[in-house]
Amino acid sequence: MTAWVFAEEIEGSPSEGSLELLSKARSHGDVTVFYVGDGSDASWTTLGNHGATKVYHLDPGDSLPSAPAAASLADLLESDGGEVVLFGAGNTDRDVAGRLAARLGKPLVAGAIDIDATDGISVTSEILGGTKAVATAITAASPALVATRPKAFAAEAVGGSAPEVVSVPVPDVGRSGAVIVERHVEASVGPDLEAAAVVVSGGRGLGSAEGFEMVDELARLLEGAVGGTRAVVDAGWVPYSYQVGQTGKTVKPNVYIACAISGAMQHVVGMKGSSTIIAINKDPDAPIFAIADLGIVGDVHTVVPQLIGALKERA
């Protein structure tokens, strides 16, 4: 059977999420990628390496990609067939998946962590903060549309050959169109949050943007990345790109240090896959302790500076 994978270009390369999906998709047979972005030979090589056999390339230029991508993908799926289309959890992934589902009149299963195609298509997803697993059988005629959780599968290069690349025209979407007028990249310091071996995150209990500085310092000492809860992003202490959780990034580092974070289900779902979780919170009943390997009931303003001091001494 043929599986399709949606891939958005991020900073010149296929998104990490799309490479994760390719690992899963190629276990089902041939893989066609629908690629949105400038495109380059390097991108095609990367996609081929991860198992793509064919690539449809749409370059929307300054148009907001969601409507043209959904229209183009709908046409291609009709002419080429394809039993399942996989989307990641990126913002554009979600926009295109939603529009495509409505266009095709097909259900879209979101939050998937696994897909089984042995007997029809069955999708496993997690709900209620990852406490329950739901198995959903897709009964509608193909293609089955599935949007996955980040890091549900591990990206892995298999050294496939270069895929066939077909450039597709940008369809006219009439009044559904929108234009991207400016693009801004918020500079973040240190390693990439989603790839770092150590993540140090701060929550509202740090008290202020100044209080957050010790999180930065601790992360620097551990050569880790800095994350935050939605509460601190909403408060403007750190940019949105730092947010870990259901509506932010999903991280799976070796070590996750949660400083003054309560452990709300929407935060936990984005970090519970970390190998070792260390939590510091002054409330002994904070839910974060239920998932921590090491929990310290104490004041961040005492414990974190002591830890920083000890690490500096070792350096």
């Binding site: 997690e126 406490t131 329950k132 697993a133 739901v134 959903t136 059988a137 979780i277």
Partner: peptide, 16 residues
């Protein structure tokens, strides 16, 4: 177009 076939508890992460 879809039916839920089962809902199960996800094994909780052991607390330390």
């Amino acid at each position: 177009g879809q039916t839920i076939s089962s809902v199960t508890d996800v094994e909780a992460r052991a607390s330390g």
